[in-house]
Computed example of a mutant assay.
Amino acid sequence: MSENTTSTPVTDTSSPEGALLRGTDLVAGYLPGVNILNGASLHCHDGELVGIIGPNGAGKSTFLKALFGLVKVSTGTVTLKGEDITNSRADQLVASGIGFVPQTNNVFPSLTVAENLEMGMYLDPKKFSERFQYVTDIFPRLGERKDQRAGSLSGGERQMVAMGRALMMNPSVLLLDEPSAGLSPALQDEVFLQTKHINAAGVSVVMVEQNARRCLQICDRGYVLDQGKDAYTASGKQLMNDPKVIELYLGTLAKA
């Protein structure tokens, strides 16, 4: 670590104006009067891959769920393409172009891979064949195992199914809640590569991650969340190399 730990962290020069997805000054929590988010803000432009990192309990997953309407926002706004979607229902958000992949319980284990993907098309089943081809082009293994039950797949393959299902409705932005959690290092690397492939295919991505080093390596911009607020934000590379961010938030993760 650099000895220069008193420098001011770099700041984000990306303007939130015209952002595809934007959360502004969000205050939210699971119980009335008990806030997990305390004025958190984030924006993601078309084609961006944005990462959210920070210490345990900082509110990272809550932030993502607030963007997707799964945690009630009491103050602040969430907009998609300039339209207010604050506290909208999940089915409305999916129809408007947001996909969400939760960290746990994100596949139907008794259903086949194809049936899981079909569940992602419940709002527009007529386009299943077209979207199935699109998703299996990104994840060829899902095509190879389309008739296998999801519960019998490896952890990495189940994560592919979950991501693939969220892509079936052709979202403009995909929200990923700790996609590498519980996976071996090799499978974690595979998930990060898959995330890059999805982004390269034209889908904007907002990703919450505990693996700070790998997240900052692949994201265009990153947010460091602390105590329910965005403490620092800049490019992934800048955050990885900023002494103050390393000292306070990344520690040995930045040098792993």
Results as ranks from 00 to 15, higher is better:
residue 213 R to W: 05
residue 247 E to N: 13
residue 217 Q to C: 14
residue 198 I to E: 07
residue 193 L to G: 05
residue 214 R to D: 08
residue 187 L to G: 07
residue 196 K to M: 05
residue 248 L to Q: 14
residue 198 I to R: 02
residue 232 Y to I: 14
residue 226 D to L: 05
residue 233 T to C: 11
residue 190 E to G: 06
residue 186 A to F: 06
residue 237 K to V: 15
residue 236 G to Q: 13
residue 237 K to P: 08
residue 231 A to W: 01
residue 227 Q to A: 14
residue 186 A to N: 10
residue 194 Q to W: 03
residue 236 G to V: 11
residue 229 K to Q: 14
residue 189 D to S: 04
residue 230 D to M: 12
residue 242 D to F: 14
residue 235 S to N: 11
residue 226 D to Y: 06
residue 221 R to Y: 04
residue 201 A to Y: 11
residue 247 E to V: 05
residue 243 P to M: 09
residue 242 D to K: 03
residue 247 E to W: 04
residue 186 A to G: 03
residue 185 P to V: 08
residue 229 K to P: 15
residue 189 D to R: 00
residue 204 S to H: 01
residue 237 K to Y: 02
residue 223 Y to S: 01
residue 238 Q to D: 12
residue 220 D to A: 07
residue 197 H to F: 03
residue 239 L to Y: 02
residue 200 A to K: 15
residue 219 C to M: 10
residue 204 S to Q: 11
residue 221 R to N: 04
residue 204 S to W: 00
residue 204 S to K: 04
residue 190 E to N: 10
residue 224 V to L: 06
residue 191 V to M: 09
residue 206 V to R: 00
residue 215 C to D: 05
residue 197 H to C: 13
residue 189 D to C: 04
residue 186 A to E: 10
residue 219 C to P: 05
residue 225 L to D: 13
residue 201 A to F: 13
residue 219 C to L: 08
residue 192 F to W: 01
residue 211 N to T: 12
residue 206 V to T: 02
residue 218 I to F: 00
residue 199 N to K: 05
residue 213 R to M: 11
residue 208 V to K: 04
residue 234 A to Y: 02
residue 195 T to I: 03
residue 243 P to K: 04
residue 209 E to H: 01
residue 218 I to Y: 00
residue 235 S to V: 08
residue 197 H to G: 15
residue 193 L to N: 09
residue 211 N to K: 08
residue 215 C to P: 03
residue 199 N to D: 14
residue 224 V to M: 04
residue 218 I to S: 13
residue 196 K to S: 14
residue 199 N to W: 10
residue 198 I to L: 05
residue 192 F to L: 04
residue 192 F to D: 03
residue 194 Q to Y: 04
residue 241 N to H: 08
residue 234 A to P: 00
residue 244 K to F: 00
residue 219 C to K: 05
residue 215 C to L: 04
residue 239 L to M: 13
residue 215 C to H: 01
residue 227 Q to F: 14
residue 225 L to E: 10
residue 216 L to Y: 01
residue 219 C to E: 08
residue 202 G to F: 12
residue 200 A to W: 08
residue 189 D to A: 07
residue 242 D to Q: 09
residue 201 A to R: 10
residue 223 Y to H: 06
residue 201 A to E: 14
residue 228 G to Y: 07
residue 195 T to Y: 00
residue 232 Y to Q: 10
residue 241 N to E: 13
residue 212 A to E: 03
residue 204 S to V: 07
residue 235 S to E: 09
residue 207 M to T: 07
residue 188 Q to R: 05
residue 242 D to W: 10
residue 224 V to E: 06
residue 196 K to I: 07
residue 186 A to S: 11
residue 196 K to H: 07
residue 201 A to C: 10
residue 222 G to H: 02
residue 212 A to G: 02
residue 194 Q to T: 09
residue 206 V to S: 02
residue 184 S to E: 09
residue 246 I to W: 02
residue 230 D to K: 06
residue 208 V to W: 08
residue 217 Q to E: 15
residue 204 S to R: 01
residue 243 P to F: 11
residue 196 K to A: 14
residue 210 Q to K: 12
residue 232 Y to S: 08
residue 206 V to F: 00
residue 247 E to D: 15
residue 187 L to E: 11
residue 216 L to H: 00
residue 194 Q to P: 04
